[in-house]
């Protein structure tokens, strides 16, 4: 479903991705690990079409089409979802209003009927429960005054409501205590399905105890430098990233 081929990208004047290759098939869960500053978030942002991220080479196909051709909102409507590492606040716009607008836009693009407000509220409340967020978070401004963990759970809530085809989670586990981590893992596992691809960017192997990936990749200096199965994450934990640096060098 996702084919990244020799991808080069820059942010402002800095080249960050230097020939990255990755293939994600439906049903697969890929974990991407790597040191700080390796380009993990850049990859997510490039895939989501964030303004300011310029692709300078290579290609990305998604469900057989050129993903890079699409505007950010078109990618979202085509089923690409990015759970942000640092979710922003939108004061004054209630979470409920925001979620409804989002779900409406995506359902409309898919050719589904727009949900009635009543049905939507019911659904949103249900999903709140699933991610362990109190319902009054629906009435608050988007991420307004949320703690770090609440913001991450709010990202997950959005993902569950939108039911995307390709989920990219950018360090959704960072800064979470073990209980919250399990909530996130449960949510992601619930979304695992034969027609959905999932990319989990993480810094810590402990998340992979709960979300067991099919593949683990190491991203360093703008490229995937090593790929393997679940065991690669354990090795990384044991030896640290310097071990990779030595191997690649």
């Amino acid at each position: 479903m996702l084919n990244i081929n020799d991808l080069h990208a820059r942010v402002e004047d800095t080249a960050i991705l230097h020939g990255l290759n990755l293939e994600v098939k439906p049903g697969e869960v890929h974990a991407i690990m790597g040191p700080n500053g390796a380009g993990k978030s850049t990859l997510g942002n490039v895939l989501a079409g964030r303004p300011g991220y310029e692709v300078t080479g290579g290609s990305v196909t998604y469900k057989g089409n050129d993903l890079l051709e699409l505007e950010a909102e078109e990618r979202a409507r085509a089923g690409v979802f990015l759970a942000f590492q640092y979710p922003v606040e939108i004061p004054g716009v209630s979470n409920m209003e925001f979620l409804k607008a989002s779900v409406d836009a995506i359902r409309t693009a898919r050719g589904d009927d727009v949900m009635s407000s009543m049905d939507f509220i019911k659904l949103a409340r249900e999903k709140c429960k699933a991610v362990d967020l109190p319902q009054d978070f629906l009435k608050r401004g988007v991420n307004e005054g949320f703690s770090g963990g609440e913001k991450k759970r709010n990202e997950l809530l959005q993902m569950m409501l939108l039911e995307p085809s390709l989920c990219i989670l950018d360090e959704t586990d960072s800064g979470l205590d073990i209980d919250a981590l399990q909530v996130v893992a449960r949510g992601v596992n619930a979304l695992r399905s034969p027609d959905r691809g999932i990319i989990v960017v993480t810094h810590y192997q402990r998340l992979l105890d709960y979300i067991v990936p099919d593949y683990v990749h190491v991203l360093a200096k703008g490229r995937i430098v090593k790929s393997g199965g679940r065991e690669l994450a354990l090795e990384l934990e044991k030896h640290g990233y310097s071990w990779i640096d030595e191997e690649v060098a």
Binding site: R50, E71, A72, E73, A76, I90, G92, V93, A105, Q158
Partner: peptide
């Protein structure tokens, strides 16, 4: 970008933010 990433076009996003 958060709005766009959630499928909401920028115009609608601005009007939502301004209305809020």
């Amino acid at each position: 970008f958060l709005c766009q990433q959630r499928g909401i076009d920028a115009e609608k996003a601005v009007s939502m933010i301004v209305n809020g």
